[in-house]
Design a protein around this nucleic acid. Structure first.
Lengths: 225, 225
DNA sequence: GTATATTTTTAGGTTAACCTAAAAACGGGG
DNA sequence: CCCCGTTTTTAGGTTAACCTAAAAATATAC
């Protein structure tokens, strides 16, 4: 079931930037978004609040910016539209890469579903676009498949899985200890083993092996990768 | 010399609506613009003030809305962009007329000069557009030619010319008299003759012949046609 | 462990583009 | 000439999207 949410152009831009930054860097930070869109960080902050209310982004104060499933789908759709318009202008009309990309930014907010699909058909017909590409995925999206990994505490990760640290929740001494062990935001951890009662947990991070108590691991918010 | 004025999307829409209404009805009224754009008349009024400041529209309180030369050129450019995008979507991609027109409305504000020209070239190459058409005129526009008739008082119109009444400036008795003679806004007048000292002036309006004193004619704002 | 730098958030603006309601001006009919 | 409906303008909002400056939280460096 397609829900049509009515995002403003700005919010679409924010969403798209978040999507891109997560693809590129693994995470989207307020300042990164602000730099990309050439606006103040405080403006991004306000935008995030709205996206949060719309249920497209999950954001806690000072916490990592993550897309919800709905947010991921919405962002992908916008990104895809952008890409199609870009390809169309650049490949079919021969518009320079820079201008084509720029124009795509503006047009993506205005183009109807119908025109978009006609562009896709045209690109496929002229072999500028393979069918399994971004554009085509859109049509398949109706089957609800899991597109964003869940946020979960490290002690809940099963042995053998890898995850990326989103946030260390605890405060003070404990937090300090965890971060000194290299458990910073963005770090990749692999759960190597768990003792019978789930305590301690053996993990590998940045090339080191560590042993964590369950209550310590329970303070670390991660996303499976 | 191309001056690039930076109009907001709204102001471009206003300008385009004025342009279209003048083509269609011979005049653009605040309420007509408001209806076309589905906004309140007071909003149009504010917009007109801004266009006036930019020197694109000549507007006096309660007076007729006329485009200046600069305004006419700007409006024509926007209209033309709209038309080209419409043709492109509809003819090349087969987008329905309604959606194509709708999308053109949104896209026209975002499309760069480069993309626009590439679209024009494409349309010409595929015979969807004759060279003397709107798009092509744009390229010629560099030579400053007179595109809008001047606003002038009726007593300054030369014998044999036709003009359209924009406004009757006087008040009270005289205004009443003039309007009772059929000299309303929108009426077409033809100057049939002038006495040696320019007084009286013989005109023909709505099938009648009238004789006006010069001071009376000097109260009537017209536009040569 | 504390100081310093960076990031995020809050507080408090501004501007453009809309709105409604009411006042002012206009235009036509008796 | 005066009245009345329509049009235009003014007055006084609201909202979204930005801003700057400063406070609060977090991250890093010594």
């Amino acid at each position: 079931m397609e829900v049509k949410l009515n995002l403003s152009e700005s919010l679409e831009d924010y969403l798209e930037a978040i999507f891109d930054l997560i693809k590129e860097n693994g995470s989207a930070r307020v300042t990164d978004i602000a730099n990309r869109l050439h606006i103040a960080a405080s403006s991004v902050n306000q935008g995030l609040k709205k996206l949060n209310q719309e249920g497209l982004v999950s954001q806690e104060k000072y916490g990592p910016i993550e897309l919800t499933n709905a947010g991921y789908r919405a962002a992908e759709k916008i990104r895809c539209k952008h890409q199609i318009i870009y390809l169309f202008l650049n490949r079919t009309l021969g518009v320079s890469e820079k201008k084509a990309d720029n124009d795509a930014c503006g047009i993506e907010h205005a183009l109807s579903e119908e025109s978009f699909e006609k562009m896709v058909d045209y690109l496929i017909k002229n072999n500028y676009l393979a069918e399994q590409n971004c554009a085509f995925k859109l049509k398949e999206n109706k089957e609800e498949k899991k597109m964003t990994a869940e946020q979960i505490m490290l002690d809940k990760i099963s042995v053998g899985s890898k995850a990326k640290i989103l946030k260390v929740q605890s405060k003070g001494r404990l937090k300090r200890k965890l971060m000194d062990m290299g458990l910073n935001r963005g770090a990749l951890v692999e759960v190597k083993g768990k003792a019978p009662m789930g305590d301690p947990i053996e993990i590998r991070v940045r090339g080191y092996s560590l042993s964590l108590r369950q209550n310590e691991a329970a303070e670390i918010l991660v996303k499976e990768v």
